[in-house]
Amino acid sequence: MKYSRLFILLFVILAAMGVKAQETTEHVIWPVLGKNDTIRVAATNDGGYMIPWIALQEVKIMGLRIWRSAADQAAFNRLRYNVLKVMPYALYAKRRYEKLERDLALVNDKKTQKKLVKECDNEIKKMFNTEIKELTITQGQILTKLIDREVGRTTYDIVKQTKGGFAAFSYQLVARVVGHNLKTTYSATEDKDIESIIVNSGYYQQ
């Protein structure tokens, strides 16, 4: 008896679903396809009319910038050169730091965590000794801004989290001697020229 009731209930549900599906598709008007309409696209039911659509990539339209003087244009060109010079390092720092966070989240052993941090630190130092040390003071200042932009934390905060407060303080002292500040933050509003250069650089194009 119980099984028969269950069967009847299931039959009623399926029948109702079939009627509902029929109601939603019976009165739908589809567009007339041409012989060249061979690409499958999404469609939206708009009052009984199926409207085909396709998602497009975002297109950014930038106005032509007019410079007040040749000196202003030359300054912007120097800034653009410096930003594009250090941008790969900022992106590398972002990827490496994200990898470190993923690796640390998978282990609970303090010894293993210290090993992971040391490996990351050695990689950063290796890059510093071979490439970053050749950067100018201006390029170094821009790099600290871009690291904050990409990672969401200042260089000082990253060192403090991974190496401790004393190491961050020591690194900051050395940085200040050569004209850097590891606590430098990035603002898309205040650093609008840098933001404009990055947006148009092609680094984030899919």
Rank of each mutant, 00 (worst) to 15 (best):
K183V: 07
H180M: 14
I39F: 04
L173M: 15
K192H: 13
V83T: 04
K114T: 09
I142L: 12
T185N: 02
L56Y: 14
R78K: 12
I29P: 01
K110M: 08
V32Y: 06
T38D: 10
F7Q: 13
N108S: 11
A105K: 04
N122E: 15
Y203S: 11
Y89G: 03
K183N: 12
R176I: 02
R68E: 14
T144F: 01
G140S: 03
K160H: 08
A175M: 04
T25I: 04
N181P: 08
E150F: 05
L143W: 05
K133G: 06
D121E: 10
D193G: 01
T185G: 01
A90N: 06
E123S: 03
M87W: 03
L10V: 12
I61A: 08
T184P: 06
K110D: 09
I51C: 11
R149C: 07
N181I: 05
K60R: 12
T155L: 09
R5Q: 13
Y204R: 01
I194A: 06
A71C: 02
N181D: 15
S196M: 11
T136H: 04
K85E: 04
F7R: 11
K183R: 14
L100C: 03
G179T: 00
N129Y: 08
G152N: 00
M50R: 03
V59W: 07
W53H: 15
Y186P: 11
V86R: 00
S170A: 15
V12M: 09
K133L: 12
K145H: 04
L116E: 08
R80E: 15
T189M: 07
R96T: 10
F169T: 13
Q205W: 06
L182E: 07
D148V: 00
N36S: 13
V12D: 06
Y171A: 15
R65Q: 12
I51E: 15
A55P: 07
D109T: 07
A42W: 00
Y92S: 09
G164Y: 14
L104V: 09
R153H: 13
A175F: 02
T112I: 13
L182N: 06
G48E: 10
Y81F: 10
E23L: 12
S4V: 14
K126R: 10
V59F: 07
C120Y: 13
Y92E: 05
K125A: 15
Q113L: 02
K60E: 14
I51D: 14
G179E: 06
K60A: 10
